[in-house]
Amino acid sequence: MAAGGAGGASKTYSFKVVLLGEGCVGKTSLVLRYCENKFNDKHITTLQASFLTKKLNIGGKRVNLAIWDTAGQERFHALGPIYYRDSNGAILVYDVTDEDSFQKVKNWVKELRKMLGNEICLCIVGNKIDLEKERNVSVQDAEEYAESVGAKHYHTSAKLNKGIEELFLDLCKRMMETAQADERAKGNGASQSSTSRRGVQIVDDEPQAATAAGVGCCSG
């Protein structure tokens, strides 16, 4: 079940999180480090790194986390909305040595807020902090930007396994809060599950127009 969609005592939350960002910023490395604790390892046993899951237990509540990798090539940019619909969270990754990749993150934020509103928990992640000497995105700029759009900022290194556990744990807690707030807003548990129905709730009268606009503004 989705978005906290479970009733009764032993509640299990299921969350969908998408990884977005330019190619080569380290999306795949981050998730492989988190789920397999491996980096650039030729002996990785997993067949694929595009869909990975992780089970967590947070404050006695079970959480099933599904992490969706997305194709980062520019030619696939317009497909974003198909990937991130239904998402409870989005991890927007940039490479701290690459200013361009940070610009891309800004474009994603704009698009996501436009399409999904505040329902989605946004994380902005500056990866490769082990390359501090080559840093091209200032910490202060990045953190201020994140705050201005209601996102949280994290510093990570997939190579050194830094900041990754914290990133995912924090994100899960925030998504649980959102789900619980949702439940409360919808009253008792009876109608809560209707949220989980068939996924996306785009509370927008013209999702088509919004898609077109969102894609348009970011492809430029």
Partner: peptide, 9 residues
């Protein structure tokens, strides 16, 4: 190496 979304799509 394990396929990422960049390979898969």
């Amino acid at each position: 190496e394990p396929a990422s979304a960049d390979d898969f799509l």
